[in-house]
Structures are given as structure tokens and as C-alpha cells.
Nucleic acid binder design. Structure first.
Lengths: 149, 149
DNA sequence: CCGATTATGAAATTCATTTTCAATATACCG
DNA sequence: CGGTATATTGAAAATGAATTTCATAATCGG
């Protein structure tokens, strides 16, 4: 963790940036937080360390981390984006519509088939998103299917 | 087409709704329009038939069509939603980041693998979204990779 | 330490979407 | 048919996430 923060610090300096306490707090908070945080959640948690940190700085810092490749923007259609750290290998998400739990999964074969499809259409893929929405085991038991919307 | 509109009309009545000219124009416009329209695009096109239609009505009508199962909301991360008609069988999307072209594809095997993964985690899937972003054949030729963002 | 540049937070702005509201249109029922 | 309850409309206002602006503060390189 310390090592990671130092590395990011160096990259920011190398890119002409400057150090700042607020940003350091946000970055550390981000990597400590559970994955898939919203800006609002992270702002709240980060303010426990430093009362004065504005949400704008959180927005800016996460955009920065994304540019540097350390964070990924997610959108589960909730109205607000979420961010996850980009340290673990690529994966996709199962999102529970009731309790919000997010399960990460990785499936090489799906990825391979995606590549095939993509190539078949002459496409050069740069990214993809796969999310499966539904009900997790806990929420699925003891619930009737529920009408759509 | 006529048949489809009548069917929707009947469903709306059956659900306690009333007929309205504005809505009829929007619905017909939607099915005539190319797929993956934004509200703004559809509003513009629909206003050529009836100057006075407000975009609010377009918003409301598409939400209605979605509830009835005739339309699907899409989000390619552009800031505004898009809608496609839900008449054709399920498919996913290849989205060109340069020219915006959207190619639809369908891959039974990917779907099957998704089901497997989902079940493996005890999940009850209700929907999924798979989008592959990149550059279409035309846009990919004659372009250097381009830095991330 | 100086001067230049970057970062900050608050406030203002943007923009898609939703809500409110008064006016209008439509369906249902006698 | 006519009356009435109810749905629909469009404009304007409200919402809410994200971004921009701006004056101030912090940090770096020399």
C-alpha cells in the first residue's frame, strides 16, 4: 500500500503535478475503501480523516487515478458512477438488484468469444463492459419473481 | 406496423390509459426511427410531424414503451440514454468510439456461458448488458492507437 | 526565498431527466 | 348525448450528478 501510494506520487510529479494533502487522503481512502464506491460514499469516508476535503477534489482525484490507470469507472445504472481500483485483473460484475451486492467474476472463455465476435465485425476493441443484473442467492430465495419495474 | 400500433393502443387502454395524439405520434416515430435514438433526436424528428410535442412527452412515452416491453433503454456512456425497439431478438452491441456506429450481434454461446457463471454464483439473472467499445473497421484503419482519454 | 504553476473548495453552471401544475382531452356511465 | 372523473399534455421549475470558474492557498524548481 505504502509502496503503491509512493509510486502514484512519483507518477504525478513526473507528469508535472504537485503533491497535496487532500489528494493523498483521497487516494489512500480510495484504495482502503471497499470496491465500487460512489463519489458520495468516498467523500463521506474521506472527510472523517480531513473535514475540509471537498467532493470536487474527490471527483478530480478519481478522474486522475483513472487517467493514470489505477481506477476504473463503473456505471450500474444507479444514477451515480462507481469506481473500483484497477489493481486486480480484469473482471466483470454480477449486480444484485435488491441488496446491491456486487460479485466479481472472470471468465476467459467469454472474453475469447467476445474477441472472436469483435474481430468477425472488423472491430478493434479497446474495452468492454459486461454486467449481469439479477438477484443474489439471498435475495432470490423468498421472493416471487416480481413484475418488471 | 399498423398492427403493432393498434396492439400497443389496446394495451394502454386495457391498463387504464387513454389515447392521445401526441403519444401516438411519438410511438410511431420511435418505431420508424433508426434504432438507438436519443430522446433529443427523437423529439426533433417527431416535431416535424407535430410542432407542439414537448420532449417531456417523449420521455414519458419511451418510459411507457419500456414498461410495456416494447423498448429497451441503452446507455453507451455518452451522457444521454438511447432507446431501441425490443421487437428483434436479444442482442448486444459493438460501439465505435470514433464515429458512433453501433453494430448489433448475437452470440448464443456467450449467453450460455453467462448463464453458467451466474448460476455458479447462485444468482438469478434478470438482465445483462454487454457492450464492446472500440473502433470500427473504417475508423480503425488510418489511425494511431490514440492515448487513453 | 521567489516566481511560476498547480491544487483547492465553494459557488456557479451545465445538462439530462423528473416533477409539478394548470389546462385540456378522453373515456366511461348513466 | 352530456357530465364527470381521470389521464395526458407542455411549460416551467426542480433535481441531482458532474463539471467549470475563480480567488486563494500550497508546492515546486531554481
Amino acid at each position: 500500500m505504502k509502496r503503491l501510494l509512493e509510486r502514484i506520487d512519483r507518477e504525478i510529479l513526473a507528469a508535472g503535478g504537485k503533491r497535496s494533502r487532500s489528494r493523498a487522503v483521497v487516494i489512500e481512502g480510495f484504495f482502503r475503501a471497499r470496491d465500487h464506491v460512489t463519489i458520495e460514499e468516498l467523500t463521506r469516508s474521506v472527510r472523517e480523516s480531513d473535514k475540509g476535503i471537498g467532493s470536487v477534489t474527490v471527483y478530480r482525484t478519481l478522474k486522475l487515478l483513472e487517467r493514470l490507470g489505477y481506477a476504473k469507472e463503473l456505471d450500474f445504472g444507479e444514477g451515480a458512477r462507481r469506481y473500483e481500483s484497477n489493481l486486480s485483473p480484469h473482471h466483470d460484475h454480477l449486480v444484485c438488484r435488491r441488496c446491491g451486492t456486487v460479485i466479481e467474476f472472470e471468465d476467459r472463455e467469454i472474453e475469447n468469444l467476445q474477441d472472436l465476435v469483435t474481430r468477425r465485425h472488423g472491430f478493434h476493441p479497446t474495452a468492454h463492459r459486461l454486467e449481469i443484473y439479477g438477484f443474489c442467492r439471498k435475495c432470490a430465495s423468498g421472493k416471487s419473481q416480481g413484475r418488471i419495474r
